[in-house]
Design a protein around this nucleic acid. Structure first.
Lengths: 192, 192
DNA sequence: CGGATCGTTGATCAACTTCAACGGTCGTGG
DNA sequence: CCACGACCGTTGAAGTTGATCAACGATCCG
């Protein structure tokens, strides 16, 4: 069963029995979503926290000029959500869309609260997950502040070559803050 | 006692008695640090998580060309640390420096582990703190991706006018990813 | 076959950086 | 108490990165 991917992930941080996991999974909903399908959209008043079992999604927003910007990708074993909306129980500004056919687990805010009351040790798990996510942000800011856009692209491509090849280029461009045309020129210039 | 600032902060997220807090504070060290003093430096093998009681600090790194970049400011009631180093128990790449005379509480990684074992409900507190921190990052990325550098500066100045006036401009520039000269030109152009 | 959808290319242009020089202010030591 | 230097901000000229626009190509899928 695919849901076990979450079991293994939690077990990397806290010890958990199979019986506990069986109960825990009851707080989640399974979502199977096709390529291009939308999981969450701006204006949604009740948002969920999503865990990726298989596939790939991205979170984006639409700016004041109508341009879409990807703020985040999520692959297998990653959590993704609008954490401000989730913390405050407010509507979200973001969209989450599947880049390919994906299987996810979602947990609503009220269910997460119930889960954490029932299994306090899950607080440790989420604490670790969010701490790591925040740490990744600090690393990302290091790149943004110290490299030119060309270098940012090349380093990203070299760090995640398979990912860069499996995702539309305009999404990579959007995520890195470059124009799609410029990425195209960088590719040609840097044949490899 | 200044330490109570932390008590009040924790109480915003989880209920805590004064007696519990008295025990909790024992896991922390008090640090009083003068303007320009350095709390943490690149290469340090044991890093702490810091809570600001009074004052202001910033976290920065030195890039491959020797240029310093501020990735984060922290004011009263904020936590600051290199969370990758803290999670993995690895040396850090960052520096934390006081911008003005500051009072902080610091907790080492082993002490934090002991604290969390002794008071599991502190997991909830840190989970909330990191979740909010991560959410702030998502918001920051929205700005970076959708606005020009001029707009980023103006919006930052309008959102935190007192802060912008109390911190050296080259630090604001560094944090926002602009050259110090350009900030100077924006100020002149945008007299207000 | 025909239309989306995604990537490419070249010309033009603006935003922003870099460099070099100068000015003001503050604090410290003589 | 003054003078000097460190530190921070300013200014203008010149240069570069990377965006924008418009047009075209390629591929995929119905």
């Amino acid at each position: 069963m695919r849901n076990n991917i979450l079991f293994q992930h939690i077990n990397q941080f806290i010890p958990l029995t199979e019986n506990e996991f069986t109960e825990i999974i009851g707080y989640f909903e399974r979502e199977d979503i096709p390529k291009k399908g939308i999981l969450m959209r701006a204006g949604d008043r009740f948002v969920n926290d999503y865990f990726i079992l298989t596939g790939c999604v991205h979170m984006y927003f639409v700016d004041h000029q109508g341009v879409e910007h990807t703020v985040q990708f999520a692959l297998k074993n990653w959590w993704i959500a609008d954490y401000i909306a989730l913390q405050r129980g407010q509507p979200t500004d973001f969209y989450i869309q599947a880049i390919e056919n994906s299987e996810l687990l979602s947990i609503s805010l009220p269910n997460r609260e119930k889960l954490l009351l029932r299994f306090p040790k899950m607080e440790s798990y989420f604490r670790a997950v969010y701490q790591i996510a925040y740490g990744s942000y600090q690393t990302r800011m290091k790149y943004i502040l110290s490299y030119s856009k060309e270098e940012i692209y090349l380093r990203f491509r070299d760090s995640f070559p398979e990912f860069v090849n499996s995702v539309p280029q305009y999404l990579i461009a959007s995520y890195l803050g470059l124009s799609a045309e410029y990425v195209s020129k960088l590719r040609r210039k840097n044949i490899s």
